[in-house]
Amino acid sequence: MSLQDILLQQLANGLILGSFYALVALGYTMVYGIIKLLNFAHGDLYMIGAFCGFLVLSLISAVVGDSWAGLLCSMVLSMIAVGLLGVLIQRIAYQPMLAAPRLSILITALAVSMILSNSVMAFTDGEFLAFSTDLGFDGVELGNVFVTYTQIVLVAAAAILMVALYLFVHKTLYGKAMRAISIDKDACRLMGINVNKIIALTFFIGTSLAAAAGIMAGSYYGSIHFFMGFVIGLKAFTAAVIGGIGSIPGAMLGGLLLGLLESYGTQIPFIGTEWKDVFSFGILILLLVFKPTGILGQTEIERM
């Protein structure tokens, strides 16, 4: 393959990977924006999304098949189910901790993350499960590079979700309330906004986006595992920081950028795939040193 082909191939890979990162990073950023919590369990909700999608698909495949229609149905159902799980977690574990010291809520989030991943491990005996779908292997040829329709559809689906989210946050009253709460929760309460309802809604949306990414990743890679949320949680956080944590367009941009950086980065000599994670964490650390506010983030001003 020529250099051009490699670049094109990695562009396709990077976009897919970047879409997954972006979808997960969105939830991170939304939750952080609204209650200033790093939800460690977010990566695990992505994993739960994949398993939930797997479960729903195996239940309904007899009726709708396991092609696009089946995948779409299971995706919608799992997004709702996992979104509700996210709200439940927020209510049980995070709501009582909002006034507690920061360290306590971080440890709580860590505990939730461990509970989610280890429950799934207990149910699956820590085995990989085959996420089998019948999406076909057709595609288009661009020069020497072959891009499957699956890849195109997945990137397009991620793009649709992101555009929908953007419109929701910027064009609806709920979105306005979300942005207002992230600026001043108490003022919102005084203005008669039901803050708890909006926080719950934020968790619902953020979590269901992670679940969507989980199902898409599961069907794309063909296998799911209880530990799959761990690394992507870290990567999505990196993506959110790259874009500027708290910023929704930032998370999208950061996700795509990190996906592309990783897929091109692994082509650099001496940085093979085994160093891929070191490469992205290295980026994270450098970024936090030199530009902790990210590309689109704003500096926080604390009042004394």
């Binding site: 971080l106 690394v231 870290l234 994670d277 650390i285 936090l288 902790p292």
Partner: peptide, 19 residues
């Protein structure tokens, strides 16, 4: 930086050392 950044960076560092 904020304390939560430390949490995630140390998590990443732990993985880097293991890898």
């Amino acid at each position: 930086l904020r304390s939560d950044y430390l949490a995630i960076v140390t998590l990443g560092f732990g993985e880097i050392v293991r890898i």
